[in-house]
Design a binder for these strands. Structure first.
Length: 287
DNA sequence: AAGAGGCCCTGATAGC
DNA sequence: TGCTATCAGGGCCTCT
């Protein structure tokens, strides 16, 4: 599901709701995710405090008070839901509000705090929760990933030199996390549209100007998406269940056969597949 | 080394 | 009230 902007929105919500809160109880309803949830998972988390919450690329990192880290990845279909506890004087057999938006199936992990609990849901099970022991192992985990688009490391020299001798198409590189991390299939098409570059163009053939545009629009598209609360295709929602608004701003993604939105361009949006991933571009203004 | 392709998994939708 | 095929925002693995 989610690319960097959606993960950032979830991370910001989590910060507001569970930062500095102590974990009271952990219930695993289904251990099968991309990695099987180990049997000691509950024990490691319980009675620890979420000291900090950070994000790198599409990974959320919970910093736990016992010097451990919990890495969360939402895969394609992971969602986190927030439920609030009802007030003490209400007599009921269930101590948390049921959310109308909480799916009935595929709830995997429940983490309870004093007044709220979060529930991780993931139909396709491509996501995972992983406990990391110590900062060195945490850094090692992200070692193989390229810089985020906002990073100083993602600069002209890096991009231009990276593309020397690279015969693959530019679109494949934008979603290749070893080159740049955080961009996924939707934003790759959007970035290339704004950069006026055809997704099938070989990376080695990009001009210096085009490299600059890739850098500029990678930043711009992701920042704007974060500001708009992410994109809500299919099932992405913020923890409160609110839709993101960025999908209203798509220029090409999901607009097959429709007119190009660029002023003065009479091209049409085409859909092709690049290594089995749908790719959208304007057949006139992207070269 | 770099690149192409397959695979993990379930659900929604389209077409018969 | 069926099928069946295809596709979905990610990432890892293998083969050449």
């Amino acid at each position: 599901m989610p690319e960097l902007p959606e993960i950032e929105v979830v991370k910001q919500s989590l910060e507001k709701k569970i930062k500095l809160k102590k974990i009271k109880k952990v219930i695993i309803k289904n251990r099968n995710l991309r990695f099987k949830i180990p049997s000691n998972f509950e024990k490691i988390l319980v009675n620890t405090t979420i000291e900090n919450i950070t994000r790198f690329s599409k990974y959320i990192i919970l910093h736990l008070s016992n010097k451990k880290y919990c890495i969360i990845h939402l895969g394609m279909s992971g969602t986190i839901h927030l439920l609030k506890k009802i007030s003490k004087d209400q007599i009921t057999n269930t101590s948390f509000y049921k959310s109308a938006l909480l799916p009935k199936k595929h709830n995997h992990i429940e983490i309870q705090f004093n007044k709220v609990k979060i529930i991780y849901n993931d139909p396709r099970r491509f996501g995972f929760f992983k406990i990391i022991f110590g900062k060195n192992k945490l850094l090692k985990m992200f070692n193989h990933l390229g810089p985020e688009p906002f990073s100083k490391k993602f600069n002209f020299n890096y991009v231009f030199n990276y593309f020397k001798n690279k015969k693959k198409n530019i679109k494949s590189f934008l979603i290749d996390q070893k080159f740049v991390s955080g961009i996924g299939n939707i934003y790759a098409s959007e970035i290339l549209f704004l950069s006026k570059i055809k997704p099938t163009k070989k990376a080695i053939k990009l001009s210096k100007k085009e490299c600059h545009r890739i850098i500029y629009f990678s930043n711009k598209v992701l920042i704007k998406a974060i500001k708009k609360g992410g994109s809500s295709i299919r099932n992405f929602k913020s923890l409160s269940g609110k839709d993101g608004l960025f999908q209203k701003e798509f220029n090409v993604y999901g607009r097959e056969d429709l007119n190009c939105l660029k002023k003065g361009c009479n091209g049409k949006v085409k859909k092709i597949f690049i290594t089995n991933r749908s790719t959208f571009f304007c057949n006139k203004c992207q070269k």
